[in-house]
C-alpha cells in the first residue's frame, strides 16, 4: 500500500512502487486533469507540484512521491487560482490539453519568483509543449497575473 497526499487528501492505493505518479493520479485516484502527452519527460503535460516544485509526474515513481504534498490542477493554491483566472480571461487555451501542465509550471514559477522577466518565464516554461502554439498568450497571462497581484 502506498499513501499519496494529493490536494490535501490522503489516498491509499495498492500499486507497484515503480508505477509513475501520472498513472496513479489518473487511473487509480481518478483525477484526470493531469495529462499524458509523451510519458518520457519531454512535454510537461503531466506536471504536478511535488512539495512545491513542478515535476513531470510521468517520471516520478509513486514510491518517490509518498509522504510528499502533491498538488494537481484540481487543487487549490493562491497562484494557481490567479493564473487560472488570467488564463480564462485571456482565452489562452486552444485545445487546452497542455494547459493543466502549463498552469502548474507557471504556478511553480510564481511561487518562487514574484516578478519574472520574459526570459525567466521562458526558462521555467520551456519544458511544456503546446502543439496548438499558445505560447504568446501564456507569457502574456503570466505577466498579467503578476500585475494583478501587484495591484491587490
Amino acid at each position: 500500500m502506498t499513501t499519496l497526499r494529493i490536494n490535501g487528501e490522503n489516498h491509499k492505493i495498492d500499486v507497484p512502487k515503480d508505477m509513475p505518479l501520472l498513472w496513479a493520479i489518473r487511473d487509480i485516484v481518478g483525477l484526470t486533469g493531469t495529462k499524458y502527452g509523451c510519458g518520457k519527460g519531454l512535454c510537461g503535460a503531466c506536471k504536478v507540484l511535488l512539495d512545491g516544485s513542478a515535476v513531470q509526474s510521468c517520471q516520478i515513481p509513486v514510491s518517490m512521491a509518498e509522504g510528499k504534498e502533491i498538488l494537481t490542477i484540481e487543487g487549490e493554491s493562491k497562484n494557481l487560482q490567479l493564473l487560472q483566472k488570467s488564463w480564462i480571461e485571456d482565452n489562452v487555451a486552444q485545445c487546452g490539453f497542455c494547459q493543466p501542465g502549463q498552469l502548474i509550471a507557471a504556478t511553480s514559477l510564481l511561487d518562487k519568483n514574484k516578478n519574472p522577466t520574459d526570459e525567466e518565464i521562458e526558462t521555467a516554461m520551456a519544458g511544456n509543449i503546446c502543439r496548438c502554439g499558445t505560447y504568446q498568450r501564456i507569457k502574456k497571462a503570466i505577466h498579467k497575473t503578476v500585475e494583478l497581484k501587484k495591484q491587490s
Binding site: T32, G33, T34, I73, Q84, A93, G96, L103
Partner: peptide, 8 residues
C-alpha cells in the same frame, strides 16, 4: 470551455 480547461 475555458473554465473547465483551466481547472482540469
Amino acid at each position: 470551455d475555458a473554465e473547465n480547461i483551466s481547472n482540469g
